[in-house]
């Protein structure tokens, strides 16, 4: 009955799907796997210690936090919105696209500029709706819903595909650690380099799609008013 060793994977899949406490799932899965595979408690605790210490690099984000909060305190968010505000003749789609590019660049440098709660809601959505109102239209409710969805979408797309460009980002460190467990030694710089085309294509797909979609929505909701 070799299959019983898969109990840990079953626990991980069910646990995350049922939204149980993530750390509880991980500890339970590790303990159950050790139990059915004849690994004793002392060895398990030692593996925990040894492996966590070997993967301490994944806590590097804590060091970066020394400046993230203080940069926010010193006006990083205001500076980002001033940068987007410099674009002339903007539409909602262009504002979203500009944010996507800036978010991507900062993501590659492992710097957050506020996310949905800190930037999109208080800064980006008003900027996007402002471009419609400045042309003398009233913002259509359905268009607003789509602007919100696209803004949250570009936030995710730019962040996901560009954060992997940061040398020493959490994802690359986990890949490096996973490969080390399997006996492969890979440098972080290679892990970042291989993602360059993915980041460029990802951001391009996101901003072109949202720009086209917004253009179509603008024609649909505002062209008749004139």
């Amino acid at each position: 009955m070799e299959y019983i060793k898969l109990i840990g994977i079953l626990i991980v899949v069910l646990g995350f799907a049922l939204k149980l406490d993530s750390i509880l799932i991980i500890i339970t899965a590790a303990a159950a796997t050790a139990l059915v595979s004849g690994i004793d408690i002392a060895t398990l605790v030692e593996t925990f210690g040894q492996s966590f210490v070997a993967n301490r690099s994944m806590t590097i984000f804590i060091l970066v936090m020394l400046v993230t909060g203080t940069m926010e305190r010193n006006g990083l968010r205001e500076a980002s919105s001033a940068l987007i505000g410099r674009i002339k003749g903007a539409t909602a789609g262009i504002v979203i696209a500009a944010y996507g590019v800036i978010r991507g660049i900062f993501g590659a440098f492992n710097v957050g500029i506020g996310g949905v709660a800190g930037f999109i809601r208080p800064v980006l959505i008003p900027m996007a709706t402002g471009t419609i109102e400045s042309k003398g239209h009233k913002v259509d409710e359905n268009h607003l819903e789509q602007i919100k969805g696209m803004s949250a979408g570009i936030e995710n797309i730019s962040w996901f595909f560009c954060q992997v460009l940061f040398v020493g980002g959490a994802g690359a460190l986990l890949v490096q650690g996973t490969l080390a467990n399997l006996g492969y030694d890979v440098p972080l710089i290679r892990l970042a380099a291989v993602e360059i085309p993915v980041a460029i294509v990802g951001v391009a797909v996101g901003i072109i799609y949202y720009w086209l979609k917004d253009r179509r929505l603008c024609i649909k909701y505002y062209s008749k008013e004139k």
């Binding site: 750390i23 991980i26 398990l44 593996t47 492996s51 993967n55 020394l66 203080t70 986990l174 467990n181």
Partner: peptide, 29 residues
């Protein structure tokens, strides 16, 4: 400010190293 941000992200921030630990238990087994 670092302590403030760390307190906000909380225990979730420790998922990557803990998942790596789980991975090494899987490999061991």
């Amino acid at each position: 400010d670092a302590a403030r941000f760390l307190s906000i992200v909380g225990p979730t921030s420790m998922l990557p190293p803990l998942l790596a630990v789980l991975g090494s238990v899987f490999t061991l087994a």
